[in-house]
């Protein structure tokens, strides 16, 4: 097929080569199918569910809506970057502890979004959390334990007083 392109992406601090990609491939597809980073999920692939959330240049995006080749030269961070092998970030830990994970399909996207939220707004109120996360759909939990996980994570972050946490 035509339109094959090769380019480089900076993902989780690593320079990765995408060889012979198709021009139309989304960042989500390239992360999942070409770079072996399947943490970002594919629940709708049309920007409605947030399951594919990643950070691009410190901005929360739906990776299904980003053309992969257009992300060349930008700083891409995925769920896989949040904690070293075998460890959990404070948000991941809060999700596990609070019972916010059922089927878990929404979980990576939500965790990326919660990190972003608590970075920007560490003292978000419940209604602010609900609004900020209303772009992340979850079908299993009814969101109760997810909100609880955010409360736990926010309290943990405040107690630690650490701005530089993962």
């Amino acid at each position: 097929m035509s339109d094959l392109v090769s380019y480089r992406l900076n993902v989780n601090g690593q320079d990765r080569t995408v060889a012979d990609g198709r021009l139309g491939e989304s960042l989500l597809y390239v992360l999942r199918e070409r770079l072996g980073l399947a943490g970002a999920k594919n629940a709708c692939e049309q920007g409605e569910c947030g399951s594919c959330s990643v950070m691009v240049d410190d901005e929360l995006v739906c990776s299904c809506l980003v053309l992969a080749a257009s992300a060349e030269g930008r700083d891409i961070r995925t769920i896989e970057s949040l904690a070293p092998e075998g460890e959990l970030s404070y948000v991941q830990q809060a999700f596990v502890d609070a019972g916010a994970v059922q089927c878990g399909f929404c979980t990576p996207g939500l965790i990326v979004s919660v990190h972003d939220l608590l970075e920007r707004q560490p003292d978000a109120t419940d209604i602010e959390v609900r609004e900020a996360l209303s772009g992340n759909l979850c079908r299993c939990t009814g969101y109760g334990r997810i909100l609880e996980a955010v409360r736990i994570a926010a309290a943990e972050r405040l107690a630690d007083g650490s701005e530089s946490r993962a």
Partner: peptide
């Protein structure tokens, strides 16, 4: 008891293999 899910940690880390993650 409120035992934690055995798959909770891999799911939170994005490592749990869903059927769409197969390769």
């Amino acid at each position: 008891e409120s035992a934690p899910r055995p798959d909770g940690i891999p799911k939170a880390r994005g490592e749990f293999a869903f059927s769409s993650d197969l390769w």
